[in-house]
Amino acid sequence: MPKQLQKNTLTYLVHKFDSMLSLCQKMKVDDTEVLYSILFIEDCSSVDAATIKKHYKEVALLIHPDKHNSIATEDAFKIVRQAWETLLSNHNKRKRTV
């Protein structure tokens, strides 16, 4: 698959996951799995901060606005960054309470 098509597909998927995230928040349902999906983390049961960071870097590099000039990509990059920050914050909170 050509790189451009991969980037467009990835951008599309991030936006779809963001729609799911908005729906979860409206319905007041736990949105943690959707946040993991935005970073393309499949196994959510035993994720550590290093895994979250690794996946964030991989996705962010693919859809970085400087490498893929599109408004959709800019928004997708912001969505990925917000998911990363939220997951890291949640992970750190859980770590402190244990």
Rank of each mutant, 00 (worst) to 15 (best):
P2Q: 09
K3L: 14
L5A: 11
L5D: 12
K7Y: 08
N8Q: 11
N8A: 08
T11G: 00
T11P: 00
Y12A: 05
Y12V: 00
L13Q: 10
L13K: 08
V14A: 02
H15N: 14
K16D: 07
D18H: 14
D18F: 11
D18I: 01
S19D: 06
M20R: 09
M20I: 07
S22D: 11
K26N: 09
K26T: 07
K28G: 02
V29H: 08
D30V: 04
D31T: 01
L35R: 15
S37T: 05
S37K: 10
S37A: 15
L39H: 06
F40R: 13
I41G: 10
E42S: 13
D43H: 11
D43N: 15
D43G: 03
S45K: 09
S45M: 03
D48M: 01
D48F: 01
A49E: 12
A49N: 03
A50T: 05
I52L: 14
K53W: 03
K54H: 13
H55M: 07
Y56G: 02
V59Y: 01
A60H: 11
A60I: 02
L61E: 15
I63Q: 03
P65N: 01
P65S: 00
D66G: 01
D66S: 10
D66P: 00
K67M: 06
K67T: 06
N69D: 04
S70T: 03
S70E: 07
E74P: 00
E74A: 00
D75Q: 06
D75A: 01
A76C: 02
F77I: 01
R81I: 02
R81N: 14
Q82N: 13
A83S: 12
W84N: 13
E85K: 14
T86H: 06
T86G: 03
L88A: 08
L88I: 12
S89G: 05
N90R: 15
K93Q: 13
R94N: 15
K95V: 06
R96K: 15
R96G: 02
R96F: 10
T97C: 10
V98N: 11
V98M: 11
V98P: 01
